[in-house]
Write a protein that binds this DNA or RNA. Structure first.
Length: 290
DNA sequence: AACCACTCCAACCGCACACAC
DNA sequence: TGTGTGTGCGGTTGGAGTGGT
């Protein structure tokens, strides 16, 4: 298994290890320790480079390696640690006895990353997907469509305006600047030219975006000057005039807990809020815009 | 049974860093 | 200070395995 040799520089062997090579390496290290990896292959009688020996030992032959499937507890630990440490697999591995950085890296890339994406989370930030500005036209179109949407995903009697606000609140929920991580930079690096280039320069009522092109005659903005990493509130503005502090709106269900119902009776349809990502994917009507 | 597409994961690659000289 | 060497790390590759048709 594994990558086939791409070259044979210096006459050193590459590619999969044979049981005989493994045995030589294990016996040598058990007897002498690895010492200098560069010197080891010659001393151990291996026609390999030191780097290859080190990798084979640390990722496969080490006696304390725990093999087999990751337990749910380990999976949760990796998720938690990755949200703090990022792709620092070696650091993550130090918290999971018996697991190697390579194994964790593979598990992350083949399982956890995909899982997070499928759940609607950004695998790098561990937050709900915040490709906010790229998706904005579509999301705004969705918001506008709410008033034409039958009651299959909205509670009966909900006003179209409230539904719009709720949709927009979701947008803000996703885009609220985090307290201290680099997802703030993701927002800053957005290609949307209407977005201010620095939080420090945001003025009162400065719109984050205008929605007139999608027939939603509102814009969204901060209530007050916003400093880096500072919590802030948002308001809806119409023609520059604040019409609705979003903090007064009912909360959305937390997307991190799929299936959770909204806690307030006035919530804009728990079906809408808690399963919106699924609706986007599954509902033919919605998928036209997703 | 044969083919294809997809997943898994061991192993390689290239870069960055620490250290010695 | 600059250069060379050794080591470690994250990203990527590609053959083997697996499941679907």
């Amino acid at each position: 298994m594994g990558r086939s040799p791409c070259c044979d520089e210096n006459g050193l062997k590459k590619g999969p290890w044979t049981p005989e090579e493994d045995q030589k390496l294990v016996l040598y290290i058990q007897k002498h320790g690895h010492g200098s990896w560069r010197a080891l292959p010659k001393l151990a009688g291996l026609n390999r480079c030191g780097k290859s020996c080190r990798l084979r030992w640390t990722n496969y032959l080490r006696p304390d390696i725990k093999r087999g499937k990751f337990s749910p507890e380990e999976e949760q630990s990796i998720l938690n640690l990755h949200s703090i440490l990022g792709n620092k697999y070696t650091h993550i591995a130090t918290h999971l006895p018996g697991r190697t950085d390579n194994e964790i890296k593979n598990f992350w890339n083949t399982h956890l990353k995909k899982k997070l994406i499928q759940m609607g989370f950004d695998p790098m930030t561990h937050r709900p997907r915040t490709d906010f500005f790229a998706a904005l036209p579509h999301l705004l179109a969705l918001a506008n469509l709410v008033e034409h949407r039958p009651s299959t995903w909205l509670v009966d009697g909900l006003s179209a305006d409230a539904a719009k606000l709720q949709c927009l609140q979701y947008l803000l929920h996703s885009a609220t600047p985090p307290s201290a991580d680099n997802s703030i930079n993701n927002l800053m690096n957005s290609t949307d030219q209407s977005f201010p280039s620095s939080f420090d320069s945001i003025n009162i009522n400065q719109p984050l975006f205008n929605a007139s092109s999608t027939n939603i005659d509102v814009s969204l903005g901060y209530d007050q000057p916003l400093l880096s990493n500072e919590n802030s509130s948002f308001s809806l503005f119409r023609h520059g005039e604040s019409i609705a502090p979003l903090s007064n709106l009912p909360p959305l269900a937390d997307f991190s807990n799929p299936g959770d119902a909204c806690s307030t009776s006035s919530c804009v349809g728990s079906a809408a809020a808690s399963s919106w990502p699924d609706l986007l994917l599954d509902d033919p009507f919605m998928s036209e815009f997703a």
